[in-house]
Design a protein around this nucleic acid. Structure first.
Length: 870
RNA sequence: GCGGGUGUGGCGGAAUUGGUAGACGCGACGGACUCAAAAUCCGUUUCUUUUUAGAGUGUCGGUUCGAGUCCGACCACCUGCACCA
C-alpha cells in the first residue's frame, strides 16, 4: 500500500525546486516550435498577493502548461506594475522611501507567487520602476514626441489645494479630495497629452477584428470612443447685438428638428460667454458659480439645469424673421462638439427640462408613426425621441427624420455665412486625448526641459535616462520633484543656459501599455527587439479583470499602433484573445461591534440552518451577504494561510472548479476542505495501486470491463482537452471527478485484476496525471514519480486520443412519447429508420401507451432520439 | 436615462447549441467500519403524492413532433456609461 497522507508542504517545495533547477519553464526566442504567448495582467506590488491574483495566475498557468504539453514554445512571463500613488502614501505615513517599500513588496510577492508553482519564466522578470524599464519608456516618449503624437495643452483638472496635486475623477469624493478632504477646485493646467483622438476611427474599427474578445468589452470600448455623425450649423447673430462674432457654431445629430428650436445654449467656458462676461458682472457671477459646483460626479447627477439669458439672439437659418434667444448653460460641455447646442425641447429630454425651467416654447416637429393628429400632438414631460414623420416644419413636412437630415444638410451647405457654408457634415468622438501628466514623484519622469529662450526642449536621447532622485522628502504635500531645486536645475541642451526639468511624471497606465512587448526581449538595449517582438506578438491569450475593460486595454491598443508607427512593433492589436475573469467573493459576518473576520468565527449547520458564533466567546454572529473580498468588510482570506495549510494544488483546483471562470467564485472553507479531500483521494488511489501498476505497460483495451476503463479514459482525455481550449476549467474539473469515480473501484482492487485491466488502469492513470497536471502540477509529479515514471510531467506530451475506442456498436437512445421521455432503446449504431421504427413500436412501454391507437407520427433522429406522437 | 449581461434544486453550477433537465461538486440525511470520534467507504437527496403518476429551468404568450435553449411582451437582479447635443 502507498503512503496514506499526501503532504503538500514537502512535496510542493520539492517539485518547485526540481522545476527551477532543470529550468523547464525558461523560454528561448529561437526555439523552432510554434510560439504561444500567455499573459496575465501583471500585479501592482501592494504588499501581499490576494485571492484575485491567485485566481488570475492559476488560469493563466493552466493555459501555459496545457499549451506546453501540446508542443508549443510557451512564453509565460511575470513582472510588476510598480509605479503609483500607494508607494507615496506609504512614504508619507511610514517614512519609508517609495523605492524601498516597492521592492520589499515585490520580494514578498515573488515568493508568494513561487509557492503557487506557476510555470513562469522568471528570467524575464522586471518592474516598471526599474531604471532600465523607464529609461526605454522615455526613449519611446521621445520617439512619439518626434512624430507629433504628444502635445502640450492646457486643460481643466481637479486640483487639491491642500495636497497641491491633480486628482483623478475617481479621487474626488463629494467635491472633496479623498485624502485631504479639501474642496476641489477646477484649474486650468498645462499638461502633456498623447493624441489618442488621432486614432479614434482606427481604434473603433479595430474592434471588429477582435473576434476573440468578449462582446461586453468591445461594446464598452465602442461606447467609450463614442462615434456620432451630425452637422455643424452656423447660426447668424441678430444684427446689432454683438460686435465681434458673426455667428455661433452648433453641433447637432438631429438637424431634422431644426424647426423645433426654441433656444441656443453655450457652455460656461465658451469663448463667447467669456467675452460677454467681461462687460456683464451678473454673467460672470453665474459662470463662477457653475465652476464651483461642477466638480463632483454626485453633484453633476443631481444638478439642476441652470441657464443665464444673454442679450444675444440668433436668426433661424431658414427664416430671417425668427429670433432665437442665446443662453449660457451649466450642462453644456465645452470639450464636446462645439460647446454649443440648439435646443429642441420636444425631442430631447435634457432640452425639455431646460425649456420647462425657463418657460421656453415646446414645439413638436416629429409625429409618432401611429396616426396621431399633428394638431393635437403635444409634448409636456417626456420628450419624444423615436422615429416618425416631420410636421410643422415647412418644406420638411412629411419626410422621415433621416430624409429631413439630408435635406437640411444639402440646403445649408449651399448657403454661405461669413464666407463659409452655413453647415458642414461632421463626425464627433467622445474619446479625448490622454492626459499623462501627474504631479507625483513615484512615476516615470517626462524627459523634457523648459528653457526661457528655447521653450520646450526634449532631453537628447544620449542624456537619458532621466533618473528619479533618491534624496526626496515626503513631509510636505505636493510633488517632491517640484521642490527638489538641484534636480530641477539643468542646462538647456540647445543653448546651455540655465533651464528647468519637467517635474511631472507619467500616468502609470503608460507603463502598462507596452510591458507585454518588453517581455519578448527584456535584455535588449532598445525598447524592443523587433525580431523578438514580431515573433511573439500578439499575445495569444491575455487574462485579467474586467475593471481594465476600457482604460488599460484601450491605451495598450493605442500604444501598439503608435509603437508600430515609430518602428518598435509590427502589430496593431496587441492581444489576440482576451479573457476577463470574475472576482473572488466571500460571505460577510458582523456583530454589534461591526464586521467580523471569517478567521474569528465558527459556522455550524443543522437542518439547513447555518449559524455563526465567535470562537473566543461563543457569542452569535450575523451571517451577511456575499461580497467582494475587502479589508473594510473584513472578509478577506489571505492566500498565504490557505497555501500553508492546504498547499498550492488545493487552492488552484478550488479556483478552477465549480464557478465558470468569467463569473465570481465564492470562497468557502467547506469548499476548500472538499477540494483537499479530493487531492488526498487521488493520492490514496494512485499510491495504493502503484505497487501493482508500476511495471505495467500502459495500453488501451477494446472490450470487456477493462475496455470500459479505456473508453472512459480516452473520452475524458478528449473532453478535458477541449474544455481547456475553451478555458472551461469548471467543466474539465467536473469530468475529472466523474472519471475518478469510474476508475476508483477497479483501482482499489488493482491487486486482484487481470493483466488487461492492469494495462488499461495504468493508461488511465497516466492520462489522469496528464489531465490534472495543468491544474495540480505538484500532485501530478508526485503521482507520476510513485508510478515509476521517468522525466518530469512538466516535460511530457499531452496523450493521444484514440477515436476508435469511443465508437460503440450498440447505442442507447431515449424514446419519447409526445415529447416526454418514457424509456430507452438499445439498437445497432447503423440501424436504419425502418428498423428503429419497428423496434420502437415493439417496446413494452410504447405498446402500453399506444393501446390500440396508431401513432400520428414518429420522429427519428438517428443516433439521437425517437419521439412517438400519439 | 442609455448600453451590456444574468435568471435552472438548500447552494455553486452541467446540459453535445432545438433532442434524456439537474452531470459534477458543496451541504444535508441514512448505513458500514469504530468502545467512541475523526477519516474512509457505500447509499439517498428538484417538488407534490404512500405508490401509480403528475408538475417543473424568473412571469405570461408564441413557433415546433420536441424549448432551459428560438421569437414577442413583462419582472427581478448585476454591471458599464452617464447632461456627449
Amino acid at each position: 500500500m502507498g503512503t496514506e497522507y499526501y503532504n503538500p508542504r514537502t512535496a510542493e517545495k520539492k517539485w518547485q525546486s526540481v522545476w527551477e533547477k532543470s529550468a523547464v519553464f525558461k523560454v528561448r526566442n529561437d526555439d523552432p516550435r510554434q510560439k504561444y504567448y500567455v499573459l496575465e495582467m501583471f500585479p501592482y506590488p501592494s504588499g501581499r498577493i490576494h485571492m484575485g491574483h491567485v485566481r488570475n495566475y492559476t488560469m493563466g498557468d493552466v493555459v501555459a502548461r496545457f499549451k506546453r504539453a501540446n508542443g508549443y514554445n510557451v512564453l509565460h512571463p511575470m513582472g510588476w506594475d510598480a509605479f503609483g500613488m500607494p508607494a507615496e502614501n506609504a512614504a508619507m505615513q511610514n517614512r519609508v522611501h517609495p523605492r524601498e517599500w516597492t521592492y520589499r513588496n515585490i520580494a514578498v510577492m515573488r515568493e508568494q507567487l513561487k509557492s503557487m508553482g506557476l510555470s513562469l519564466d522568471w528570467s524575464r522578470e522586471f518592474a516598471t520602476c526599474d531604471v532600465d524599464y523607464y529609461y526605454h519608456q522615455q526613449v519611446l516618449f521621445l520617439d512619439i514626441y518626434e512624430k507629433g503624437l504628444v502635445t502640450r495643452k492646457t486643460s481643466k483638472v481637479n486640483w487639491d489645494p491642500v495636497d497641491h496635486t491633480v486628482l483623478a475623477n475617481e479621487q474626488v469624493v463629494d467635491g472633496r479630495g479623498w485624502r485631504s478632504g479639501a474642496l476641489v477646485e477646477q484649474q486650468e493646467l498645462a499638461q502633456w497629452f498623447f493624441r489618442t483622438t488621432d486614432y479614434s476611427e482606427e481604434l473603433l474599427e479595430g474592434l471588429d477584428c477582435l473576434e476573440q474578445w468578449p462582446d461586453k468589452v468591445r461594446t464598452m470600448q465602442r461606447n467609450w470612443i463614442g462615434k456620432s455623425e451630425g452637422l455643424i450649423i452656423r447660426w447668424q447673430l441678430a444684427p446689432g447685438t454683438f460686435g465681434k462674432s458673426v455667428c455661433i457654431e452648433v453641433y447637432t445629430t438631429r438637424p431634422d428638428t431644426i424647426f423645433g428650436v426654441s433656444f441656443i445654449a453655450i457652455a460656461v467656458d465658451h469663448p463667447l460667454a467669456r467675452e460677454l462676461a467681461k462687460t456683464d458682472s451678473d454673467l460672470q457671477a453665474f459662470i463662477d458659480e457653475c465652476y464651483q459646483a461642477s466638480t463632483s460626479t454626485a453633484a453633476i447627477e443631481t444638478a439642476e439645469k441652470k441657464g443665464f439669458k444673454t442679450e444675444l439672439d440668433v436668426l433661424h437659418p431658414f427664416d430671417n424673421e425668427w429670433k432665437i434667444p442665446v443662453y449660457v448653460a451649466n450642462f453644456i460641455l465645452m470639450d464636446y462638439g462645439t460647446g454649443a447646442i440648439f435646443g429642441c425641447p420636444a425631442h430631447d429630454q435634457r432640452d425639455l427640462d431646460f425649456a420647462n425651467a425657463y418657460d421656453l416654447p415646446v414645439r413638436p416637429v416629429v409625429l409618432p408613426q401611429d396616426d396621431q393628429d399633428p394638431m393635437t400632438f403635444s409634448v409636456t414631460k417626456a420628450a419624444y425621441t423615436e422615429n416618425g414623420t416631420l410636421i410643422h416644419s415647412r418644406f420638411l413636412d412629411g419626410l422621415t427624420p433621416q430624409a429631413a437630415f439630408e435635406e437640411v444638410a444639402t440646403r445649408l451647405k449651399k448657403t454661405m455665412l461669413d464666407g463659409k457654408p452655413q453647415a458642414e457634415q461632421c463626425i464627433q468622438f467622445r474619446l479625448r486625448d490622454w492626459g499623462i501628466s501627474r504631479q507625483r514623484y513615484w512615476g516615470c519622469p517626462i524627459p523634457v526641459i523648459y528653457c526661457d529662450d528655447c521653450g520646450i526642449v526634449p532631453v537628447p536621447k544620449a542624456d537619458l535616462p532621466v533618473i528619479l532622485p533618491e534624496d526626496v522628502t515626503f513631509d510636505q504635500p505636493g510633488n517632491p520633484l517640484d521642490r527638489h531645486e538641484k534636480w530641477k536645475r539643468v542646462k538647456c541642451p540647445k543653448c546651455s543656459r540655465l533651464a528647468r526639468r519637467e517635474t511631472d511624471t507619467m500616468d502609470t497606465f503608460v507603463d502598462s501599455s507596452w510591458y507585454y512587448a518588453r517581455f519578448t526581449a527584456p535584455w535588449k538595449k532598445e525598447p524592443t527587439d523587433i525580431v523578438a517582438v514580431d515573433h511573439w506578438l500578439p499575445v495569444d491569450q491575455y487574462i485579467g479583470g474586467i475593471e481594465h475593460a476600457i482604460l488599460h486595454l484601450l491605451y495598450s491598443r493605442f500604444f501598439a499602433r503608435v509603437m508600430k508607427k515609430i518602428g518598435h512593433v509590427q502589430v496593431e492589436e496587441p492581444f489576440k484573445s482576451l479573457f476577463t475573469q470574475g472576482m473572488v467573493v466571500h460571505e460577510t459576518y458582523r456583530n454589534n461591534q461591526g464586521w467580523v473576520s471569517p478567521a474569528e468565527i465558527r459556522i455550524e449547520e443543522k437542518d439547513g440552518n447555518r449559524t455563526a458564533t465567535l470562537c473566543s466567546s461563543g457569542e452569535p454572529v450575523e451571517i451577511g451577504s456575499i461580497e467582494k473580498m475587502s479589508k473594510s468588510k473584513r472578509n478577506v482570506v489571505d492566500p498565504d494561510d490557505i497555501l500553508a495549510s492546504y498547499g498550492a494544488d488545493t487552492v488552484r483546483w478550488f479556483m478552477l472548479s465549480d464557478s465558470p471562470p468569467e463569473r465570481d467564485v465564492i470562497w468557502s472553507e467547506a469548499g476548500v476542505e472538499g477540494v483537499h479531500r479530493f487531492v488526498q483521494r487521488i493520492w490514496r488511489l494512485v499510491s495504493g495501486a502503484a505497487g501493482e501498476l508500476r511495471d505495467i505497460m500502459p495500453q488501451a483495451i477494446y472490450n470487456g470491463a477493462a475496455g470500459e476503463i479505456s473508453k472512459a479514459a480516452h473520452c475524458t482525455l478528449k473532453a478535458v482537452g477541449d474544455d481547456f481550449e475553451k478555458l472551461a476549467f469548471n467543466r474539465a474539473v467536473a469530468r475529472l471527478y466523474e472519471f475518478v469515480n469510474i476508475i476508483s473501484p477497479a483501482l482499489q482492487s488493482a491487486g486482484r485484476v487481470e493483466t488487461d485491466m492492469k494495462a488499461a488502469l495504468r493508461q488511465a492513470l497516466d492520462f489522469l496525471i496528464a489531465m490534472i497536471a495543468p491544474m495540480m502540477p505538484h500532485l501530478a509529479e508526485e503521482c507520476h514519480a510513485i508510478l515509476g515514471g521517468k522525466n518530469l510531467v512538466a516535460n511530457l506530451f499531452w496523450p493521444i486520443f484514440d477515436s476508435a475506442l469511443i465508437i460503440d456498436n450498440d447505442l442507447t437512445i431515449p424514446v419519447q412519447i409526445n415529447g416526454k421521455k418514457r424509456g430507452d432503446l438499445i439498437i445497432a449504431r447503423d440501424a436504419d429508420q425502418a428498423t428503429i421504427e419497428k423496434a420502437v413500436l415493439s417496446l413494452d412501454f410504447v405498446v402500453n401507451r399506444l393501446g390500440n391507437k396508431i401513432p400520428k407520427k414518429i420522429i427519428i433522429v438517428p443516433q439521437r432520439i425517437v419521439n412517438v406522437v400519439i
